[in-house]
């Protein structure tokens, strides 16, 4: 890093102060990927903390179920209400099921589920690990023969990677169901027509996109939570700061990754980047 900074400074005549400012973020990114690498490597190395994985699956997966169902239901209902109005102008109200299904499975389902889980779990992980850090429990763990990354980070990475795609599928289904509730009971559309247009609208790449994204989001949520938690310094104030940072950074990264995944899928399906 020092060599690179010197090279850049001499090449562009940049002020050393600017390079010093850049060092922090670059080192943080480097540390993040080192942590990710160790967490992934530990998946294949003993000891495996299966009890911790199950516990985290319960907390992250089952614990997030109510908010994911609520979010999925109301986003599906809103989509059906708004889209039916727009489609009615073109006499295509029968396509409401199709629009709701595509929007939910491709974008809203994965994104909203990830944002909800990020709000609940990235911050939860950061505060839990941050509290352990400032009370020396992380040091105690190392002193007592345990690798904190193996014991704390890897189980959260595995649990989130397994549970978030499942939660997304649930949110997608609940959202489409909510769309049907609106279409059938409020708009008085034909039930069979709704489900058929929704079902026919979905292609394999929609399903693939809807499942690849939750997996990437799971890595972001769990690792950002752990990263900020393990970097916590400065007592309870530091825990609060780490919690906020984890949630904000995870949420922003979810949108960034959404864009790039969409670009990749558009490229794969149309043959060129839009």
């Amino acid at each position: 890093m020092g060599l690179l900074a010197t090279m850049v400074a001499s090449e562009f005549g940049a002020q050393p102060l600017l390079l010093d400012l850049l060092k922090g973020p670059v080192l943080a990114v480097q540390d993040f990927f080192l942590l990710l690498g160790r967490a992934v490597r530990n998946i294949f190395r003993a000891p495996h903390y299966n009890d911790d994985i199950a516990l985290q699956m319960d907390y992250i997966g089952v614990g997030s179920l109510p908010i994911v169902i609520m979010t999925g239901f109301f986003s599906g209902a809103v989509m059906a209400l708004q889209m039916s109005r727009a489609l009615a102008q073109y006499g295509q109200i029968s396509k409401t099921g199709m629009v709701v299904a595509i929007t939910l499975v491709r974008e809203l389902g994965p994104d909203l589920t990830a944002l909800m889980v990020a709000g609940r779990n990235a911050s939860g992980i950061a505060s839990e690990l941050g509290s352990m850090k400032v009370t020396e429990q992380i040091d105690a763990m190392r002193a007592l023969g345990t690798d904190p990354i193996q014991k704390l980070v890897t189980p959260r990475l595995i649990a989130t990677s397994v549970m978030l795609p499942i939660l997304t599928v649930i949110a997608d289904f609940v959202g489409i169901f909510a769309g049907w509730v609106i279409c059938y009971f409020i708009l008085h559309l034909d039930s069979r027509q709704y489900w058929e247009s929704a079902w026919r609208a979905l292609e394999w790449n929609d399903v693939a996109q809807g499942l690849v994204k939750p997996f990437l989001f799971a890595v972001i949520i769990s690792m950002i939570g752990c990263f900020f938690g393990l970097r916590t310094e400065g007592g309870t104030q530091g825990v609060g700061r780490a919690t906020t940072q984890a949630m904000v950074v995870a949420s922003v990264l979810i949108f960034v990754v959404t864009y790039f995944v969409a670009q990749v899928f558009v490229y794969l399906t149309s043959g060129e980047i839009q």
């Binding site: 009370t135 020396e136 429990q137 040091d139 105690a140 763990m141 190392r142 002193a143 007592l144 023969g145």
Partner: peptide, 14 residues
């Protein structure tokens, strides 16, 4: 480390 015992400042009990 398995041959060293350590008491941390704030106990550091889990």
């Amino acid at each position: 480390r398995s041959r060293i015992g350590m008491l941390f400042q704030e106990s550091a009990l889990f």
